[in-house]
Write a protein that binds this DNA or RNA. Structure first.
Lengths: 217, 217
DNA sequence: TCATAATACGAACGATCGTACTATTTGTTT
DNA sequence: AAACAAATAGTACGATCGTTCGTATTATGA
């Protein structure tokens, strides 16, 4: 929680490890992954080349890739790092709200901020990477598909909480509602980048608001 | 109209040209672009490499790229080719319906078929390419942004026709409704590819139907 | 101080990238 | 048949790709 990229690097969560050598390695891993997520959000996980990353960070290719083993492992670590950032930027703030409609709204608002504030320079990291690997098999695809499934499940679960709290009608299909809401978010993210405008976020907010209002008890 | 890829290749629409040399060139251009859109729908417009394309088509790199001049020009031609395919698969069938709510539904249904039938092996070509270049400047970005803007404008115009026909309420914001509907389509396309399932198209249909029903007069 | 272990570097590898330049083949025209 | 034009092929270039190997640097232990 203190550092989003700690366990994304694959360390065994050993904060009290006083070995300065592995601490140096962890520091480098976090440095690399911090740049990697930004690069990948713009140029994709394939555009994330080792040589480019090494040049930008003023280090050697071999020294960089030694931390990950292969490019595919670097891509998987980058996804884990992006998940950690997403969790702190979107999920955790929402979970600080009490369960109910307020938490649903907090989750969606946090996502819109995460996208429009360009927490990643290329907009939502997952929108970029997921489309890149949607039609390609392999471990990277699977990791992204799992992340997407978890994200939609989180929305649906938050909706179900609001139903349990009596703030969303019981006859609403939580999965369907989650699908609709996520669709608005993704569409706004894409078209804001595409047009260089932020007005589309207002359209997303209007869509979210209407859909939630008509679902409220 | 007879051949979707004819003018996408950049020819000046000279069908009666009896010169067998340029006819051969046009045939090759269409062959190349037909493969290019399929490859790009899976691996993106950057993954579209000249060498790979040449190998798959059993021709030389130099002979292939001579038709386009540069990779960026090939990418732009590929976008034009994809637009032509999209027009015949989605737009033209819908425009054969009389203006009104029926045409709106026909347009959306045609899009869902275009996506779920995998008219491109990687799902919607534009979903893939647009996310790839959303955060990158240049002519390719601009061409994709223009295509997206035209697509949303077409939906909005079709909605406005239905309003003029008295089948959609006059107080409905056509641009907002178009945004919502397009969001459902894109979301279904992505998540169907990601999960390898087609059930998500039913969610999209449910979302489209609800949104249109509540907007109907 | 000296062996040990982890991290980082430098150089080179074969492969592929996009592009340019020069033939060669194929079809047209006179 | 000869001159011409368009399409295609062949070859090579410099750059970058991911990866591997040997070595140097840095920090930790005995």
């Amino acid at each position: 929680m203190t550092d989003q990229l700690a366990d994304a690097a694959g360390t065994t969560a050993d904060p009290a490890d006083t070995d300065g050598r592995v601490r140096r390695g962890d520091r480098t891993r976090r440095l690399v992954l911090g740049r990697a997520v930004d690069v990948a959000s713009v140029d994709g996980l394939e555009g994330l080349s080792i040589g480019r990353l090494a040049t930008e960070l003023s280090m050697s290719k071999s020294g960089l890739i030694a931390h990950f083993g292969s490019k595919e492992q670097l891509q998987l670590a980058t996804i884990r790092a992006a998940r950690a950032i997403f969790a702190t930027a979107v999920v955790e703030p929402a979970l600080r709200e009490p369960p109910g409609l307020g938490r649903v709204r907090a989750l969606l608002d946090a996502w819109l901020d995460y996208s429009s504030d360009r927490r990643f320079p290329g907009g939502c990291f997952f929108a970029r990477a997921t489309h890149e690997f949607a039609a390609r098999p392999g471990p990277v695809h699977d990791a992204l598909a799992a992340a997407d499934t978890e994200w939609l499940a989180l929305i649906a679960r938050t909706i179900a909480e609001a139903q349990a709290a009596g703030e969303i009608r019981a006859d609403v299909d939580a999965d369907q509602l989650a699908f609709d809401l996520a669709a608005y978010l993704d569409s706004a993210n894409l078209r804001s980048l595409l047009l260089g405008s932020f007005a589309v976020y207002d359209q997303a907010r209007a869509a979210l608001d209407r859909r939630l209002t008509e679902s409220a008890s």
